[in-house]
Structure formats: C-alpha cells, structure tokens
Design a protein around this nucleic acid. Structure first.
Length: 477
DNA sequence: TGCTCTTTTAC
DNA sequence: TAAAAGAGC
C-alpha cells in the first residue's frame, strides 16, 4: 500500500486551534497535517485525574475534531490505555506515512519519559520530532537570577518575569491556514469513547471560550483585585479549567489583557496587574517543578518538614472530604469542590490550611484529593499551592501563619451568602452566627465541630517545632 | 495571601 | 476605653 506522507501533530494539553504553535508549524511545513489525540484512561487513573476532567477532555477533543475538520485537518481521536502503548501506536502511524512529529512539551515526569520514547521511535525511523515549550509563558529555566540561579521566592521571580515581558512581549500564533482536502489512508484504531457527561457545565466551543476570556479582560479584570477574594461573588476569571487542558493559553490571556487593559496591567495593584500576577504564579510553579524534579515524587520542598509525623486521623480526613467538619466555610468550600469540580481560590487556601493545621493531616492527602476532584487539576499549581499552604514549599507561608477559619469566613464571606448557598441546613441561621453556629439552633442538624481551632493551632506549632531547629532551645539553656 | 497576646497611644 | 501598634509564634 502506498501512503501519502503527512506531518503528525500530537495534541495533549493544548486542545486549541488558535495559538497552537505545534499545529501552526506543522501546517507551515508543507505536508498534509494529521492531528492525533490518544485517550489514556489507565494513565489518567494513575494520576488520580478527576472523572470530570476526563470527561471534559473527551468532550473538548470531540469538538476540536469539528473545528479542525473545517480546516481540512483530520483529528484522529484514539482510545488507548496507558502511556507505555504509545510508542507502538506511533510506529504504526510512521508506517502509514507520518514523516514528522509536532507537539508541545510537558513538565511532569511520566509525560517526559513517554515523550522521550516517542521521540526515539521517530528518530529510529529517521524522522524528526519538533517540540515547543509553550505551557508556561516564560519557559522553565528562562527566568533566572543575576547569578544564574533559580528563584525560590515569588516576588523577585515576578520582577524579572515582568521585565522580560516588557522587553520581549508575547507572541501568539494565528489559526493555521486552510489545508488542501486530501484523503489519507490512516490505520484502523479503536476510536475514542464518549465521557460520562459530568463536565457539561463547561462549554467546549473554542470561540465561545475565547469570547469569555475577552469579556473577562475587558469588563472584569479591572475589578479583580477588589472582588477576587469573595467566593459569593463571580469575581474570578473562571478560566482555570480551560487553561488546564489548553483550550486557551496563558499567552492568549496576557495578550488580550494587554489589549483590553491598556497600561493597567503594568500598574501596581490594578485589577489587571493582580490577575497577571496569578498567571505569573502559574509560571513560577512550572519553573520550580522543572528545577526540582523531586517535587514530582511529592517530596517536601523544605526538607526538614518531611520529618513531621502527621497524625493522619482517617475519620477527620473523611469529614474534611465530605464537608462535615462543623466549620461552615470549610464545609461549604468542600461541597463546592465535590459538586462542581471547582473551588474558589480563597477557599482552596482556607481548606488546605484547615486540613494541615487544624486536622494535622499530611498535605499530600489533600493534594491527591484535590486532583481526584478538580476539573482544573494541574500538578505544578496544585502541588505548589498545597506546599505553600502547608508551609513546606517555596516561598511558603511561615509555619506559624495559621488561618483561623472563622476569621477568614467573617472577612471573605461577611454575610454568609456563599455558606448558605452551599449549606442549606444553615439557611435560617442569623448572619452573626453563620460563621460559627455552635451551639446549634435546635432546628438544625448541622454537624458539631470536629476539632477546637485554638487547641489544634497549638498542636500544629508543636508539630513544626519537632523539626524546626530544636538546637536553638538547647543553646540558650 | 495570619493570629494572638501584650503594650502603647489617643481621646 | 478602645483602637493601633508591636512582638513572637
């Protein structure tokens, strides 16, 4: 059988038509282009990927098939199992006419191993593979201190990052040109299955999503600084799920922000600048992950903190997971996660602090639980966030910074609007008691608090003192 | 992007 | 007397 030669674009966390460098370059190269996506539920399971995220990916890939078909680019969506079967699949595509591979690099360990093997498969067949580093805006390793070191503190990292943005700007790639309509012979492979529909609250149409992003930059970014901390408001971009699977890129967000927010993005403490900061955090954690490969194995960044023996009470962990701790803000937040696959960022900090510093459970348990539920789960950001909250990470909160869940609740959900939305059993509690409705009004069957915060706080200080410089105490005696 | 206890300051 | 400021965790 004589096959037509083609370029293969392997899509993973870059499920978009616009600003897709791998797709763009392949289309520029001359040969017909075939896009490939391989669903790998066994590997996803290993990564504890949320079922909702899996469904979201499947729905997006189906939609992308239509969007690419309009450009005469066939998207071969395959049902696979795990990463180890992919080199063999690639060999079959090489045998059918794949002349070159185009893709975006990923930063996690198993993904890098997988991609190295696929590159080798192409190399063995005498075919090139082209990898583009576009997950972070400034590729890991590109933002370094004056002495060439890796920044471990966010603020100086951000300073250098912003200077780079000012001098180099952002490049986005346009939609690829229409390709000639050529019928290709492709191998018979199991076609990707449909998901369970659990992510249906999220649209998957790319232009629709880009429009949401534009609207945020145009109408809401200016208020981000003042509204983002209040979970009862719709003050955040809500783009995290799309960023996580690459329906939009951070580069597109920043370019659009620069267009819509004029010079505000570079004005200290403006809404646009604060939102941009959040995107810089995303880059920061990608840099850190690539510079410290141990992190992928869930090692604490601050090594001494791995000496802490966490009590890990199973019943307390379960209460946290189910939103049954008796702390309304914590329970409301956990129910938001369980029901929607998403949690407001302020609440992520509160429940993370609570799990570690009130329930004394290893931050890795929370990290994993988040991944198992989040539609926007991303290793680097999730691990970075958890280690920050647990005071074990880079630029971490000092260990003695312990959120008081009731104070946080009063500050960020002052009228209890969010709490009441998620906890109908507290609907009739007066505002003044909503943050701490104990002892309970007799009509309510809300759960009693599982721990006493002030005692738990002291216990946390003790736990950290077991690993933080005990010699200081001896020296002074 | 802390909390809590203590001391100081303003009225 | 209470808000503001300071210190230590």
């Amino acid at each position: 059988m004589i096959n037509t030669a083609f370029s293969l674009v392997w899509l993973r966390n870059d499920l978009r038509v616009y600003d897709n460098q791998a797709l763009f370059e392949a289309c520029q190269a001359g040969l017909p282009v075939v896009a490939l996506f391989v669903a790998t539920p066994d590997s996803w399971q290993q990564h504890v990927m949320a079922p909702m995220k899996q469904d979201f990916i499947r729905r997006r890939v189906q939609q992308l098939q239509t969007e690419l078909a309009a450009l005469n680019i066939p998207l071969l969506a395959i049902e696979g199992s795990n990463y180890s079967a992919i080199p063999e699949l690639m060999q079959r595509l090489i045998d059918t006419g794949a002349e070159a591979l185009y893709g975006h690099t990923e930063y996690e360990l198993r993904e890098r191993v997988r991609d190295d093997k696929v590159s080798a498969t192409f190399a063995n067949a005498g075919k090139p593979s082209f990898w583009f580093d576009r997950k972070a805006v400034m590729p890991p390793g590109s933002i370094l201190s004056k002495t060439g070191g890796i920044y471990q503190i966010f603020t100086p990292f951000k300073k250098t990052w912003l200077a780079r943005l000012r001098e180099a700007g952002i490049r986005c790639f346009s939609k690829p040109k229409m390709m000639p309509d050529i019928k290709l012979q492709l191998p018979e492979l199991p076609l990707m299955k449909q998901g369970d529909g659990s992510s249906s609250a999220y649209v998957v149409d790319e232009l629709h999503i880009l429009e949401q992003m534009r609207q945020f930059c145009r109408d809401k970014a200016a208020y981000y600084q003042t509204e983002r901390d209040f979970p009862a408001l719709d003050g955040t971009s809500s783009l995290s799920a799309y960023l996580a699977i690459g329906v939009v890129s951070a580069q597109q967000c920043i370019s659009r922000l620069q267009l819509e927010a004029a010079n505000d993005w570079d004005r200290e403490k403006s809404g646009a600048a604060v939102w941009l900061s959040e995107l810089v955090w995303r880059d920061f954690y990608h840099h850190i992950l690539m510079a410290f490969p141990e992190l992928i194995k869930h090692k604490a960044f601050q090594k001494d903190t791995d000496g802490i023996v966490w009590p890990n009470n199973l019943a307390l962990f379960q209460a946290w997971c189910e939103g049954q701790t008796g702390y309304p803000i914590v329970d409301a937040a956990m129910r938001q996660l369980n029901q929607t696959g998403w949690m407001h960022n302020r609440l992520r900090m509160i429940v993370a602090s609570f799990l570690v510093k009130d329930l004394h459970i290893d931050w890795r348990w929370g990290e994993q639980y988040f991944m198992s539920k989040l539609i926007d789960g991303d290793f680097a950001a999730n691990n970075g966030g958890w280690q920050w909250a647990a005071s074990t990470g880079t630029d971490a909160a000092p260990y003695f910074r312990i959120f008081n869940p009731v104070t946080q609740s009063e500050r960020f959900d002052p009228d209890g609007v969010f709490i009441k939305r998620m906890l109908p059993e507290l609907a009739d509690v007066p505002k003044k008691q909503i943050h701490w409705p104990h002892p309970l009004p007799m009509w309510s069957d809300y759960v009693k608090p599982v721990v006493d915060h002030s005692k738990a706080r002291l216990k946390t200080l003790e736990l950290f003192h077991t690993v933080k410089k005990p010699q200081d105490v001896l020296d002074h005696e």
